[in-house]
Design a protein around this nucleic acid. Sequence first.
DNA 1: CTTTCAATAAACACAC
DNA 2: GGTGTGTTTATTGAAA
Length: 678
Amino acid sequence: MFQCVFSSSVLQPHSTSCLFKHLFYHSATPASQKQPEPIYSKKTEIQRQTVRAHSVKLFIFSALQVARQLLLQQQQQQQVSGLKSPKRNDKQPALQVPVSVAMMTPQVITPQQMQQILQQQVLSPQQLQVLLQQQQALMLQQQQLQEFYKKQQEQLQLQLLQQQHAGKQPKEQQQVATQQLAFQQQLLQMQQLQQQHLLSLQRQGLLTIQPGQPALPLQPLAQGMIPTELQQLWKEVTSAHTAEETTGNNHSSLDLTTTCVSSSAPSKTSLIMNPHASTNGQLSVHTPKRESLSHEEHSHSHPLYGHGVCKWPGCEAVCEDFQSFLKHLNSEHALDDRSTAQCRVQMQVVQQLELQLAKDKERLQAMMTHLHVKSTEPKAAPQPLNLVSSVTLSKSASEASPQSLPHTPTTPTAPITPVTQGPSVITTTSMHTVGPIRRRYSDKYNVPISSDIAQNQEFYKNAEVRPPFTYASLIRQAILESPEKQLTLNEIYNWFTRMFAYFRRNAATWKNAVRHNLSLHKCFVRVENVKGAVWTVDEVEFQKRRPQKISGNPSLIKNMQSSHAYCTPLNAALQASMAENSIPLYTTASMGNPTLGNLASAIREELNGAMEHTNSNESDSSPGRSPMQAVHPVHVKEEPLDPEEAEGPLSLVTTANHSPDFDHDRDYEDEPVNEDME
DNA sequence: CTTTCAATAAACACAC
DNA sequence: GGTGTGTTTATTGAAA
């Protein structure tokens, strides 16, 4: 099947529809064949998907971490239930709330569902990042609730034992029971919240759940007790203990993220909910929790608050202190459809990833092994990595049945690694696009082109993802990567096709674009020689036009400039890159934290405005280089074809001094340019 | 809403 | 005449 990919790369369709036909012929879906989509709709779809790809990168990468946490949580939960449940079954069945079961239930989200989620493209990468943090916070909270519950149960058992022996202290016991009840209530409400999130998600169309799909969360939650029952019990108990519970320490009781876990002796206070919360059937758990976090010490640990900025997805409102943040949170991010929807998405993702985690790990391992071996392998035999094969498979699958049946995890046809049907498939599927894009691709995310290309080299080579850079940037990169800083047009072509699978199709289109850019931009200087002509880069010219095209997420830029906050947003971009491509192998730290080297390099490059990277493959990960150092002085001959521009050492009009085979895997490598030039 | 920028398409010229 | 290369213009869409 991946032959199809490569054949289509060889194919030079005159139009996108031609390509579509080609693909559709290989597709099993008659339905898709019936849709003669207009070219421009394809274009927009393509660009949507290309952008989406970056979201997906982040999405998958971060979610893996969450899934890991989830697994931990599950283990703990098993411990809890295994240890505690048998003892207490007969005594207080009403208190047998399966802690966090709802969250852990492996509700299978199909790749299609995920794809649907992702295709909505409602969330920017940054939003996803924050969302994931939010999700992690939720998980953490549940975990801690769980632990606390465990401790409460232990305490209760202890007291029950004491009572059995001494037959005293019913009050204490009741109090503990009350605490547990309250705790369970909180759990329940949390899960209700989650369910509500999911529902609103569905309502918004963020998530489409097929009828046949397993129902999502929260059914297991009430396994031992139905909500109304809990409510009733809660009312009863709280009415009995109102006095002591509502007195002083609401915060300590609710401060689950800190106190309950850290202190071995859980607060004896009640886990009472906010009074106003209990009046309303829809208790918002986070409201009391947020308030409880009003301690300064907690502010920095709040996942939605950091560096004076609200980290709610897409918000980033500045809050001077934690209190203002809380106000902001409660006012701006109330329990509405949007926030709940986002939360739901993450829940689903995490649950899916939980199932996928083991497989992905294995796959990652295989990929690492595989790619490490072939890192410098020429592409004479462009054996499609598993990535590519998965692209192809997923493409066919998704085209064949966009929504019908989930990918079954049983696709072990791949020789080395199983072709996963999870995020990676979604990634490649959603970004698998055909046809030209009329889009302004201006160095997305502010990730420097050389870094991005270097980090995602393998990915770009194998996945038909449009690099998020302009033609001008790419051409420049191609030229600068060459030893002589000059390339013939054909060599530029070859660089494009070699480095980017995306440019293995629609050759007429993008080659025209390349020529157009070469001619149009003053930064590209044509130098003639006997053999023909080569193109060079006038860096001054290039830098002149660069400030205008700084686009990307403004918040990203903003955050990147604050040295403190650069970790999160830039991280998003880097993680996005790393998660999507096959490179995490080179940066094994990527599972937890992106490599600081790359980070620093990226930041440095970005803050320096623009700097050249020559052989980005090796040099990009080496920090500590100044922009000037990056410029190549070799074989540079000042020849101000544009005299008004060639004002500095950056003028890179070079001589036609070409070393023959700087490019081993190129078709046209045997075009040594003569030394002399005119 | 306007401007700017980039992508795309296409016509044309020229050389081989 | 075909092809590759290079230039130019126009259109379109996205973003500022």
